[in-house]
């Protein structure tokens, strides 16, 4: 039994999943977070998902891998995924890896919910 790594909130038909961890680095941790994230689509059948990065201070390439897989899962389920509240250092990681091109990234949760 692993502890909850995502705070889940339902706002209308949108699921907002906020990462609890400050550091999404350690492999085991990333595995657990990945599984909880995938469960939103695979088990709960949620189609509109916002991932909120307010708490996240560090993120490794392994975590980026999970986000890419999540994006694919949501797209395969004909849903939509948005990322929000990413601090500048982390946004730089997305820019360096050009992942800002594949993810729909919004400044904050309000913007992420707008017209979703």
């Amino acid at each position: 039994m692993s502890t909850r790594r995502l705070d889940i909130e339902e706002i209308g038909d949108v699921t907002v999943a906020k990462f609890i961890d400050k550091k999404i680095l350690d492999e085991t941790n990333i595995q657990i977070i990945g599984n909880q994230m995938f469960g939103l689509v695979d088990e709960d059948g949620r189609k509109k998902v916002v991932l909120d990065f307010t708490n996240v201070e560090y993120l490794s390439s392994a975590a980026l891998g999970k986000l890419i897989t999540m994006d694919k899962k949501v797209k395969a389920a004909k849903g939509k995924l948005r990322l929000c509240a990413i601090r500048p250092e982390i946004y730089e990681v997305f820019e360096i890896t050009r992942l800002n091109k594949i993810f729909d990234i919004k400044t904050n949760q309000e913007q992420a919910l707008e017209g979703f």
Partner: peptide, 21 residues
């Protein structure tokens, strides 16, 4: 190169690039 169009959606291969950056 993880930023090449054909690799962009592959979930691995970004570590070395981040270290360099």
């Amino acid at each position: 190169d993880p930023t090449a169009e054909e690799n962009l959606e592959r979930p691995c291969g970004r570590g070395i690039m981040l270290m360099r950056a």
